[in-house]
């Protein structure tokens, strides 16, 4: 029995017909088939639409697979230099405090070259949303090792697997930023199943609502797949993600309303 029959409360007219949100443009996504980026884009766009903040939202695209995110969101957007999105967001939000500002960054952008910008924007408690897509690899440049690449995971720059002794450990930057007082909401989600996508959307909504309330950074990591970079079919990539990524990057809230969970 499907979820809709089991839970009659979600059988509402508005849920009967799937519609594309108006905050997404009609441009064809350049992402690989099976990639999570498209889903996360849609969830962010839906939240902006539902909150009625399209005219007040400024987004920042990173360098990486989402470099052209500005082609897909029908809002004003800026494209940052590699890793610098939180610096841009800081200035925009400081000078336009009534606007909604979010960055959309990958693991190389946020957790390698932009580590300083990430940590200091969070530590200052900038009133922004950071959407962090972690697929453990550099997708755009062709599958090189990322700061979040798992131990033993092969990439084009760790062809025999990530050797912890010489290449360092995968970085749990989300747990790291959660320790900072400026982080108000820190969570780790995924979008590989409808249930997970709904949870991720709720998290994104909570993040933008936090910004409306003037709270500090809301930081949402989405553990995602990279079937091209991982050299797996979309289905196999999702299975691999569940078996390998989730044990190291467990899903769930890490910090809610400024309090660490557990």
């Amino acid at each position: 029995m499907s979820e809709a029959f089991a839970r009659p409360e979600i059988r509402k007219p508005k849920n009967n017909v799937f519609k594309k949100t108006k905050v997404l443009t009609d441009n064809v996504l350049h992402y690989c088939p099976g990639c999570g980026h498209g889903v996360v884009h849609r969830l962010v766009a839906e939240v902006i639409d539902e909150m009625g903040i399209q005219e007040k939202t400024i987004g920042i695209a990173p360098v990486g697979c989402a470099v052209m995110a500005y082609n897909y969101f029908d809002i004003d957007m800026q494209e940052a230099a590699h890793g610098r999105a939180p610096a841009l967001a800081t200035a925009i939000k400081r000078m336009l405090p009534e606007k909604f500002v979010f960055t959309y960054q990958g693991d190389g952008d946020l957790a390698a070259i932009g580590t300083a910008e990430t940590i200091h924007a969070v530590n200052r408690g900038e009133k922004i949303v950071i959407i962090f897509i972690n697929n453990g690899i550099y997708g755009m440049t062709g599958g090189q090792m990322a700061p979040t690449t798992l131990k033993g995971m092969p990439t084009s720059t760790s062809p025999y697997g990530r050797d912890i002794q010489t290449m360092g450990n995968p970085l749990k930057i989300t747990e790291l930023v959660a320790q900072l007082p400026g982080a108000y909401y820190v969570t780790r989600q995924s979008v590989h199943t409808p249930v997970n996508a709904r949870k991720a959307k709720n998290a994104i909504k909570k993040a933008f609502e936090n910004q409306a309330k003037g709270c500090g950074v809301s930081f949402i990591e989405v553990v995602s797949n990279c079937n091209s970079g991982w050299k797996l079919s979309p289905v196999k990539a999702n299975e691999w993600m569940e078996q390998n990524m989730f044990p190291f990057y467990p899903l769930g809230d890490i910090k809610v309303d400024g309090e660490l969970v557990k």
Partner: peptide
């Protein structure tokens, strides 16, 4: 936090 961040803050503000 750095000159790098400062000039990118300038980018963000200038773009507005």
């Amino acid at each position: 936090e750095s000159e790098v961040a400062a000039i990118n803050m300038v980018y963000g503000g200038g773009a507005c």
